[in-house]
Design a binder for these strands. Structure first.
Lengths: 240, 240
DNA sequence: CTGTCAACATATCTTCGTAATTAATGAAGA
DNA sequence: TCTTCATTAATTACGAAGATATGTTGACAG
C-alpha cells in the first residue's frame, strides 16, 4: 500500500516531520528551523532537504529564499495521498472524525463505482469479483486472509469501472479497510461478509446499475454498523 | 491550483520528466539513465535527484542501489494528485478519455457531496453559496469571472459537507473546470449557468439531501452536454 | 550432475561540506 | 510618496566521498 518506500534514514525523517505537521505540533504557517532539525535528527542538510522535498510534493511545506521553509495552509495538503493518509493513522491519537470522513467518502464513491461497474464490467472483471468472493468465503476465521479478500474485492470493483481515476480512489478504500482491520483486530463477532458482497456481484452480473449501487450502499452501512457496535463494546470494557 | 511551486530550474526538470512518464515516452518499468538526463538538462546530480524525489513522492519512480532508478507501474501513480492531473493536461495530446474519466468521477462525488451538504450546511456555508451564485450572475459574459464564480461555487459546496477528505476532491473538480474552460475558450452559446446552480442551493437551503443530489446531477449532465455539443461544432468546423 | 546457500565484488544510489544564487528588507535618492 | 539599490539571510546547486542492496561466483550438499 505505501507508495513512498524511502530507504535509509530518510524514511524516518520524512515520516516524523510529516506527523509533526499532520497532528499540529508544527502549526500551519510556522517556519521550520532547518539547523535545529539537522542537529536533532543528526543528518546533513541534503537529507533534510530531500525529506522536505517529499513533503513539498504533497503540498505540506514550501521553501523560499530569505523567508525560510514553512508549513503550508492545511487546505493545500494532499490528504487523499496514500502516504499522508497512512502517516495520519500511524500515530495513535489521530484526528477525531478522520475515520468517519474516510467512511463518508467511501459511502459516496463506492456505490457510484458499483453502478458504473454494473454498466461496464466485462466477463474478466466479474471473474475477478467472483474469485475475491470465493477467497472471502474460504478465509473463514483467518483475519488476514479475510482482509486480503475484502481488499481484493473492492479493488476488483473499482477496476470494473474501467475508469482510471476512480480506480485510484483505492487509496482511500485501502486505508479505510486497513484502519477498520486494526480496530477490530482479533475481536470476533462480525457478521458473515459474503452475502452482502455477493449481492453486489449479482447486481453487476445482471448489469443492473441501480441495484448494484443499492447493494453496495447496504454493504457499507453494515460495515460502519459493525465498527460502531465494536466501539460501544470497547467503551463498556473501558468502564471496568 | 498548483501545489508544487518549484522555483529555479527545478520546476522545469520535474515537469518535463513527469510528462515523459505520463505520456508513455518513458514506459513503466524502464530505467532512467541519470547520467544522460544530467547532461541533457545540463544540471547537477543533486538537482536531478530532487526532481526524481518529487516524482517518487507521487509514486511514479523508485530508486534502488544496483538496479537504478525506474518508472513504477502505472497503478502506483497518484493520478488524483493536483500536479499529476495538471501535468497530464499541460501537454496538448493528453490521453483520450482522461476528461471523460474526470467527469465521471465528478458525477459520482458531487451529487453525494451536495447531499451531505444539504444535511449539514450552516448559514455561513449557504451564504458562501449565495455569494458564488451572485458572482456567477454578475459575471455576465466575462469568461474568467464566470469560471472563478463557478469554481467558488463548487468549492463552497464541498466545504459545506464539513468533511475534509471530500473537500480535497476539489483538485479533481478544479482540473475539470479548468480543462472545460480551456476547451470552450471564447466560444459563446453556453446556457445560463445560474438556474441549475441555484436549484442546488435551494435544495441545500431546504436541507433536502435527495433533491440536492438530483439537482447537482442535472447540473453536471448539462455541463457535459455543453462540452459534447461544442465538440460536435468543432468537428463540423474542421470539415471546411 | 543438479540445486541450494553463503561470501564477495561492484554498480548505483545516498550523503556530505562548501560555494553560488535568490529574493525580501531597509535605506538612500528622485 | 515612489523608485532604486545595496545588504543579507536563506534556499539552491555542486562535485566527491561513503554506504548498500543486488547480482555473481564458488563451494557444498543432495
Amino acid at each position: 500500500m505505501q507508495q513512498y518506500n524511502a530507504r535509509g534514514v530518510h524514511g524516518q525523517t520524512v515520516e516524523v516531520l510529516a506527523q509533526r505537521i499532520l497532528d499540529g505540533r508544527m502549526p500551519e504557517g510556522s517556519t521550520l528551523d532547518l539547523t535545529a532539525l539537522q542537529s536533532e535528527f543528526d543528518v546533513s542538510l541534503t537529507v533534510l532537504r530531500e525529506a522536505l522535498r517529499v513533503l513539498a510534493a504533497k503540498g505540506m511545506v514550501d521553501a523560499r529564499p530569505k523567508r525560510g521553509t514553512f508549513v503550508r495552509p492545511r487546505a493545500n495538503w494532499s490528504l487523499l495521498d496514500a502516504d499522508v493518509l497512512r502517516w495520519q493513522f500511524a500515530r495513535s491519537p489521530h484526528r477525531p472524525g478522520l475515520f468517519d470522513d474516510l467512511h463518508e467518502l467511501r459511502a459516496i464513491v463506492e456505490p457510484g463505482a458499483a453502478s458504473l461497474a454494473a454498466a461496464r464490467a466485462t466477463d474478466t472483471d466479474i471473474e475477478a469479483l467472483d474469485a475475491a468472493l470465493a477467497d472471502m468465503a474460504a478465509a473463514g476465521d483467518d483475519p488476514s486472509a479475510a482482509v486480503a479478500a475484502d481488499l481484493a474485492f473492492h479493488r476488483a470493483l473499482l477496476a470494473a469501472t474501467h475508469n482510471e481515476l476512480i480506480q485510484r480512489m483505492e487509496v482511500v478504500i485501502e486505508t479505510g479497510l486497513a484502519e477498520r482491520d486494526r480496530m477490530v483486530h482479533g475481536t470476533a463477532g462480525a457478521d458473515d461478509p459474503v452475502p452482502s458482497h455477493k449481492a453486489v456481484v449479482d447486481a453487476i452480473r445482471r448489469h443492473n446499475p441501480a441495484q448494484a449501487a443499492r447493494a453496495m450502499g447496504k454493504l457499507l452501512d453494515q460495515a460502519i454498523e459493525d465498527v460502531a457496535r465494536l466501539e460501544r463494546t470497547q467503551h463498556e470494557d473501558r468502564q471496568d
